[in-house]
């Protein structure tokens, strides 16, 4: 007869337990990536495609007009992809729970909402690393553009863009939580709605005067302005970066508050019982 093996459960309130729960969820997303080579390929495929397309366009423009200097286009594409991939990496993890009707199980387990957010953020970083490392290397090999040439400030750019992506993802995930998968499109499109205002491919000065303060209220706008400043003039205003990080803090807090609000609202409206289309 088999001996009974009872579960050994520690204090559910401690940091160790919290890390265990976050780790369990991260493991769940890694299992998912591992379960399908197509999913793994997809993580690299789109950013690679983007980089190649814009790289060739830049080469063409540089040869024909000489106006595009220092890898501005390809640099913008790579940095924009950092924000987009961090947002999608977070959102897709969340959507996986909706698609698999697993969210009800998660939300009745001891997993806290902040632990769910932490696990999704960790997975977003992992997906980003899987996507961007080979693509950044390819940009150097194919087009001679070295993203690391931006110097130490790249780490700060990276942080601003990732945090912006997470804020957008948190907000869209909250809406999906409340309104169901009918609002799924928001996950894919929200970043693009802000694309013109983030001034990815042109300077803020190009925008009409009344639109410029709005553009500058986005953290990522400061990154793209900073990138152009470094590539064109080899200078960079660190104050802009501080401002961008401060904006990040505000948006992240607001996005997390909205996520919690929508979660609460979903519990009040019974939406968690009807997750799906």
């Amino acid at each position: 007869m088999t001996a009974i093996v009872l579960p050994v459960i520690g204090d559910p309130g401690g940091m160790e337990a919290s890390l265990r729960r976050i780790g369990a969820l991260v493991r769940r997303y890694l299992y998912l990536i591992k379960s399908s080579w197509l999913r793994s390929l997809e993580i690299v495929y789109w950013p690679f495609l983007q980089m190649v397309m814009w790289g060739f366009l830049q080469r063409y423009l540089a040869n024909s007009t000489g106006a595009i200097a220092g890898g501005l286009l390809i640099g913008a594409v790579l940095l924009w992809d950092i924000q987009f991939r961090s947002q999608i990496g977070f959102s897709v993890g969340f959507l996986e729970e909706m698609w698999s009707r697993n969210l009800g199980q998660l939300l009745t387990s001891p997993l806290r909402p902040n632990e769910l957010v932490a696990a999704l953020s960790i997975m977003s970083l992992m997906r980003l690393a899987i996507a961007m490392v080979p693509v950044t290397a390819a940009a150097y090999l194919f087009f001679g553009f070295n993203l690391f040439g931006l110097g130490a400030v790249l780490a700060a750019f990276f942080a601003v863009l990732v945090l912006t992506g997470w804020a957008l993802a948190l907000f869209s995930s909250g809406i999906i939580l409340r309104y169901g998968l009918g609002a799924e499109e928001l996950s894919w499109s929200l970043g693009f709605i802000l694309l013109p205002l983030a001034c990815v491919y042109y300077p803020v000065a190009v925008l009409p005067g009344w639109l410029q303060p709005i553009a500058l209220a986005l953290p990522s706008t400061h990154v793209f302005e900073g990138m152009r400043s470094i590539l064109l003039h080899n200078t960079f205003d660190a104050g802009e970066l501080v401002w961008a990080l401060a904006l990040n803090a505000v948006y992240l807090l607001a996005a997390y508050a909205s996520f919690r609000y929508f979660l609460r609202s979903a519990r009040v409206n019974g939406a968690l019982l009807q997750l799906g289309e």
Partner: peptide, 25 residues
């Protein structure tokens, strides 16, 4: 009315949930 992730194996699902419920063994 709820499911577990379909693409994960049974062992993977149970392992994940064991972690979520704080099970050490």
């Amino acid at each position: 009315y709820v499911d577990m992730p379909m693409r994960l194996t049974v062992r993977q699902n149970l392992t994940v949930y064991a972690g979520l419920y704080g099970i050490a063994n």
